[in-house]
Nucleic acid binder design. Sequence first.
DNA 1: CGGACTGATTGAACCGATTCAATTCCGGAA
DNA 2: TTCCGGAATTGAATCGGTTCAATCAGTCCG
Lengths: 341, 341
Amino acid sequence: MARARIKDVARLAGVSVGTVSNVLNRPDLVASPTQERVLAAVRELEFVRNASARSLRVGANRAIGLVVLDVGNPFFTDVARGAQEAADALGMMVMLCSSENEVARQQRHLEMFEQQRVLGVLLTPAGTRDPHVDEMVKRGTPVVLLDAARGVRKRCSVTVDDVMGGRLVVEHLVAQGHQRITFVGGEPSVRQVRDRLRGAQGALPGGAHLAVHPTADLTVAAGREAAKAILASSDRRPTAAFCANDLLALGMLQELTRQRLDVPSDLALVGYDDIEFASAAAVPLSSVRQPRQELGRVAVELLLEEVDEGAAHRHRQVMFTPELVVRDSSRVDVMAGRRPA
Amino acid sequence: MARARIKDVARLAGVSVGTVSNVLNRPDLVASPTQERVLAAVRELEFVRNASARSLRVGANRAIGLVVLDVGNPFFTDVARGAQEAADALGMMVMLCSSENEVARQQRHLEMFEQQRVLGVLLTPAGTRDPHVDEMVKRGTPVVLLDAARGVRKRCSVTVDDVMGGRLVVEHLVAQGHQRITFVGGEPSVRQVRDRLRGAQGALPGGAHLAVHPTADLTVAAGREAAKAILASSDRRPTAAFCANDLLALGMLQELTRQRLDVPSDLALVGYDDIEFASAAAVPLSSVRQPRQELGRVAVELLLEEVDEGAAHRHRQVMFTPELVVRDSSRVDVMAGRRPA
DNA sequence: CGGACTGATTGAACCGATTCAATTCCGGAA
DNA sequence: TTCCGGAATTGAATCGGTTCAATCAGTCCG
């Protein structure tokens, strides 16, 4: 069966194509009996609107592009979910793509979106500033940055305060009596890591010392290596480690378990991101939670705001505050319960 | 700057619109100097094709819809990545949506895809058979099922052999000398779970016994509860547990750690799915790996095959074989290394 | 009864790229 | 010189909805 077009519906219902279109888009203009006849014809023919024809005429799609760094990363999928939800509520569609942190791939996806004439794009940028993005914006496709460098004033953006996150962690560890804390996860080229470290350093009271143990990347394997190195070092061992993300912390936990050391009594651990598996770890992991879905939701709102306001738009930067989630991996009183004197 | 249309490009290059279109789509028809003039004009005007106009005329989009049960689940994101890759190679776009296991949401996404006139849809179905899907197929949008019930002959599908997966696990445990094995994760309404259990039972040698410990769902929390119940039970404790998925296994590992029991010497564990965090667990988790990206890749191929062949198409069901990944959580010889006599 | 007004409906123009039959151009053969 | 064939190019028709000025049918009021 060939697909029905609006013309077929009109013929079957005995009205003009204009009326069918009105029933679909502005039903208040059409008398009820006519509406019913048209809707009956729509059902009868199983009519499905052709979005291409529609958006060709209207000039824009009811779709939003979303390019994340890595669909495999739970952080981004939660952001995507938030965006989905917000878009759904407004009858829009989110098209999700992953750049796998490759600029070329990001570029291809953006190009696709632009060809589709999406309303706008939410982007967690791969690499550094991409001139292609600027050009796309200039051509009329607005972009909202997600979790990107702070201080970009020429775009709307949504971020989380990583400096505060770092501060929260160290304040917590200090309150638990820790004096020797190591920050694990150096890679200072990553803005997030830099900020977290900065916050951590800022929260130290006078006497305390914050060692920094850099790692090549932010993976479980790197965490394992870091733990080995720290435990083998001749210096006085730290009593707590603040890892730049949860993967590092899980890696450290793995190595500590292998060496039959106890968390938190031998070494307290705090991660960052509060990925789903943080609470699922053998010793549930303290971590810093970011309002991920909220991030996506607000990004969609900012985008639509920008679209609606047109030229009058002033870019806004929204920054969320993270939240410390304390679990067994850094909680002293739980230890007491587990090792009765 | 208003967006350039193909007409503007034609004027600037001093050719007709037909020629511009040919440069873009069938460059072999156009003389080189003309091509260069046109391409220069394209760059000059920053021309971006309007995909709506194109697919309106051509009749179909260069896009494939993909509806997964849950974008948060690493299994599905890997499938998506595989599909992405295959599509990319063919110059197609994958539109990824998540049904969150809600039929209504799935329905909305499918409707969107149909309006977009996508080439076809890859679907991991929520709920049971959905008549809407049948109707969509009848209207001309082909569907390839991903990881859905086996034995569906009226569609193309891609699955993994869960019966074999279950068998592999039990054969491995038996080879390690285990006699009392418990299968954790009952929920027999889930086809995958049923198949894994069936495979497990089929692999038992004469004397061995397979207890089944049902759980409400397949989460970490359920795994914790299961571990508590099994450890508290008065029966002779099993020496190994085969969990229906990795989340259950991680939950059990958590509870075992809390009770200061050792894996695998007190209880060996094997999970299923080989999610990223299986190898990241405190005791790296044995698990069954499915060729996830491959799943997505082949699904795309099947879809395009179906599109190309048209009416002559015969549906195909592709079944992959899973692979057992043995890690510390069920490996005896590692224990020896860790606890020298 | 005529005119003004409201509400419902019509139908043709339009969005922008693709396609294909028709046309132009050129070089070579007769 | 004419004619033919092939390559290059043209331009109008087309895809399927949306939109809006124009038309039509009633209703109300004076």
